[in-house]
């Protein structure tokens, strides 16, 4: 039989991609998460519209509210990847077939794709239905949303891993995630504000620096600490 050939040296990348694809296949099949998320975004933006009423709000406030909508959408969707494994009892299956790091990166990739799709949808609805929200410097806005999405995915994933092992998962998630995401939120709100004010791209470089450092810091600490969360 030749066990040696089969003692597979699964590369980290290969294993992560396999896990990412499995998660996506599962999501596409059940479709519960995606449709719930879409409805959640629509509801949140509607609430914002109704709350603003006919008076509207300053562009600066609207910049903030965009990210409020993103935050809540993220909180309702990004914990699924870990919580679903716990609920179905397949956490152990995953522990058995892959290294912890592969699990982390696979789920990170999944959440990244999910949050980018989610944010694109939020931004679309927001721009379409809130006429006062006008972007003047598109380059700043695009980079802000992109980097912000990556940052969201990174922080949301590691916190999701933590709460998946706890009892009151649903309500615990935003409570734990908010302090961690706050620096990110403040920075992307600032970046969005700059984009609406028509600032030059260079003026937002400070914000981008912070975002990139945040992403690096969160991914690094996730990589180092994930074993302690995932392994029993």
């Amino acid at each position: 039989m030749g066990y040696d050939r089969n003692i597979a040296k699964a590369s980290l990348w290969q294993a992560s991609v396999a896990i990412f694809l499995k998660d996506w296949k599962s999501e596409l099949r059940t479709r519960y998460a995606i449709s719930a998320l879409v409805m959640f975004v629509v509801t949140t933006i509607s609430i914002i519209l109704f709350a603003l009423g006919s008076e509207g709000a300053s562009v600066s406030a609207l910049s903030g509210m965009l990210w409020v909508a993103v935050f809540f959408a993220a909180m309702s969707g990004l914990s699924r990847t870990f919580v679903a494994e716990e609920e179905r009892g397949t956490s152990m299956t995953l522990q058995l077939v892959a290294s912890p790091t592969a699990v982390l990166f696979g789920k990170l990739m999944f959440n990244l794709v999910l949050v980018v799709c989610l944010n694109a949808f939020v931004v679309l609805l927001y721009s379409a239905f809130i006429s006062e929200f006008v972007i003047r410097t598109y380059s700043i806005f695009v980079v802000t949303v992109l980097l912000g999405s990556i940052g969201f995915a990174a922080a949301a994933t590691i916190i999701a891993a933590i709460i998946a092992r706890a009892n009151t998962k649903g309500t615990l998630y935003p409570v734990l995630a908010f302090p961690i995401l706050l620096p990110l939120l403040l920075t992307v709100i600032n970046g969005t504000r700059l984009a609406t004010e028509g600032a030059f791209f260079e003026e937002a470089l400070g914000e981008f620096n912070i975002l990139v450092s945040y992403i690096v810091a969160v991914v690094a600490v996730s990589y180092i600490l994930f074993d302690y969360i995932w392994k029993d």
Partner: peptide
């Protein structure tokens, strides 16, 4: 547990692809 929503083929393919 196996992945309930998948078929045996999909479960097994996952078992193989995650090990390259």
């Amino acid at each position: 547990q196996m992945y309930d929503e998948f078929s045996p083929r999909e479960n097994l393919q996952f078992a193989l692809s995650v090990r390259n």
